[in-house]
Amino acid sequence: MSNLFGFDGGDTWLHHLSGATKMLAFVGISIIAMASYDLRFTAAIMVMSLILFYQAKIKWSQVSLVVKIITAFSLLNLITVYLFSPEYGVQLYGTRHLLFGSGYLTVTSEQLFYELNLLSKYIVTVPLALIFLITTNPSEFAASLNKIHLSYKVSYSVALALRYIPDIQNVYHQISLSQQARGYELSKKAKFSQRLKGSAQILMPLIFSSLDRIDTVSQAMELRRFGRKKHRTWYMDHPFAWQDWLTLAGTAAIILIGAWLFKVNGGRFYNPFR
């Protein structure tokens, strides 16, 4: 089973950035890109995020499934937006340049421009999210969350959850196989409702074995003094380097440009049709 959202070690400058930096940059840039409907701006960030994705040297095989799923849903979304309201762009921009079509299903330049805006937003966020998930070591991320003043107990539970995902996947798989041998058909041959019922049967043993584990792990942690002091240090801690500050400064600059464009455009929308 491939690790869908797992950290994958690497040696690019993006891997060396602190996890908190990457999270702040990802959240900051995504928000401004979502808010802005200035295609010049979002297209520029889109190009940047694609370049970054290329620089992170992420293996295509690791993300291909996720990317395909997201692409499919994005296209579906774009089509639905059009089908529900083919003239939404006309309403937004106040002009109407008909390209072709008639009746309900018309295609206007305004609608195309609006949907292009949407598309660019998707393309901005997806590579950034993948970069964050795949180039961030969960332990280092926990350490950096702690550094931005989140309680270390909370920070550590984030890392611990990530640590146990593969284990739980494994146990789930084992239980599922044994239930199948008992007679639950969970393969594609069975009806969906049956598969759902069968899957529910896996949950009870899974929960019980997980509860046992939690008990043992928490004892093991206490035996090694987790929670003894107000502060703890982190083996994977990674001091903020100039690259981190530069990245944060760059993020701030992008956000400021986005905000400045709101002012220039007199709102969130850039209107080329006026």
Partner: peptide
């Protein structure tokens, strides 16, 4: 095991001692 790598697991008690 609590650490994501063997090294972190060995260091766990020391981390908690700051």
């Amino acid at each position: 095991f609590v650490g994501l790598t063997a090294a972190e697991d060995i260091a766990f008690a020391m981390e908690n001692d700051a």
